[in-house]
Design a protein around this nucleic acid. Structure first.
Lengths: 233, 233
DNA sequence: ATTCATATTATGTGCATACATAAATTCAAG
DNA sequence: CTTGAATTTATGTATGCACATAATATGAAT
């Protein structure tokens, strides 16, 4: 029996995946090197390389020069999390997105925020509080501080008309940052705005965004009760 | 002035990123095609392709055959979420991991779970409730149903000694699935086990795992108060 | 036995080339 | 004007080759 030729990198991904799933290649085991696999599959090493690189990206394989490629032992569950702008999230649910600026000032943020934005004591930042709605119902409450050092233009922007979420994505492209996901009880004011009882368990998302290493904005988003973030493994 | 030659795909990623960040290439705009960029950078199209593919993976660019490559307009924030097994999560915090099986039975799950596991009415599944601790403190409460259709071996496994989380990762390699993240109030029993007041806002993770399309296990994990899932953009 | 330089090896990357494929565009037929 | 077939074009992928690089393995010198 001659093995069927596998000459597309996706076919190789599938075959390797199959061998691992079937236990043929056990967790932790070393697999043949690229040259040997290329010979076995009847394709070039480039193609094998592409496939194995893809599986390493997915966290299925561990690769090290000279040491070779092995099946990961206790692979993490790895998922890609795409967080669209709020408007898209609402529209994806088939609802009409609404936006209301609740509060705007230019003041010194609390110490924790100042530290995140790397501001000197007493230095001011732009503070925006706003509510996004889905078909008129509260969807998420956004409490945002924007560093006017990083984005001086923000002081001129009309955030009553254009929400900060989208303004920043368009005006400060390609930012990096950190996200924290947690659960928090609704405070009195938050409960009022979101239309729930104080103390209700809310899904909370904290985000610090940087552009070229410089902190741009720190946001806390409190989602209305029932919100669920869904993702595929 | 001659442009410096960029002959590594990472250098090209950086240059393209710079051009977008600087506004040189605006969101939504079409960028030059691969052949032209290759000529400009003094490298082969293969190298440009590799770089642009990488940026498309990251969600920075949109590429379509014939239509060309454009800068994404309202790019989602994209993060890679790695969820290690619970033991690793605890150990990463520098704490000692503990595991206690609280409950085990083989019974018919509630309808919602039965539907997820694609079980016929009345069909039984393995039900495990367990607590993971960090330095003796409650860390996460796990409520898990395992489909014995998909994993008959699970009935023989000793889940008092080996936690189901790791047993499954090792015995059912390469599974896919869906995760839901939400906030939930602690119920009476849950509060008792986790050592918090009933109604406390808890971070909740629901997971359905499949292997080769077949539902394997459905878990709900309730994290002790203060848990925060952190991820990088 | 220990240390350090050297050889070996598997992956990482780049190039030139060729052909495949999706999709926009063009253009002819009705 | 509409429909649909043919053309064009930008990306997608495969190949053979070459060299770079990291890390292990080897072996000589102390």
């Amino acid at each position: 029996m001659t093995a069927p030729r596998l000459q597309s990198w996706t076919a190789i991904v599938e075959e390797v995946t199959r061998r691992i799933a079937s236990g043929d290649w056990a967790p932790g085991a070393l697999i043949p090197n690229e040259a040997d696999l290329a010979a076995e599959f009847g394709c070039s090493r480039t193609t094998v390389n592409r496939a194995l690189r893809d599986l390493a990206d997915k966290g299925v394989l561990d690769r090290r020069r000279k040491a070779g490629t092995r099946v990961r032992d206790l692979p993490d569950s790895r998922a890609r999390l795409d967080i669209p702008i709020v408007r898209k999230q609402v529209e994806r649910r088939g609802a009409q997105h609404g936006y209301h600026l609740l509060h705007r000032d230019h003041s010194a943020p609390p110490p924790a925020i100042a530290a995140q934005l790397e501001l000197e004591a007493g230095q001011k930042a732009l503070h925006l509080t706003s509510l996004h709605t889905a078909d008129g119902q509260p969807f998420v409450l956004e409490d945002r501080w924007i560093s006017t050092l990083a984005v001086p233009d923000a002081l001129q922007a009309d955030f009553a008309a254009c929400n900060a979420n989208e303004w920043l994505v368009q005006n400060v492209p390609l930012s990096t940052g950190e996200i924290g996901l947690s659960a928090a009880p609704a405070g009195a004011e938050e409960a009022e705005v979101l239309g729930c009882a104080p103390g209700t368990a809310l899904f909370r998302q904290d985000r610090l965004t940087r552009n070229a290493g410089m902190p741009v904005t720190a946001v806390t988003m409190l989602f209305a009760p029932g919100y669920r973030m869904r993702l595929d493994l």
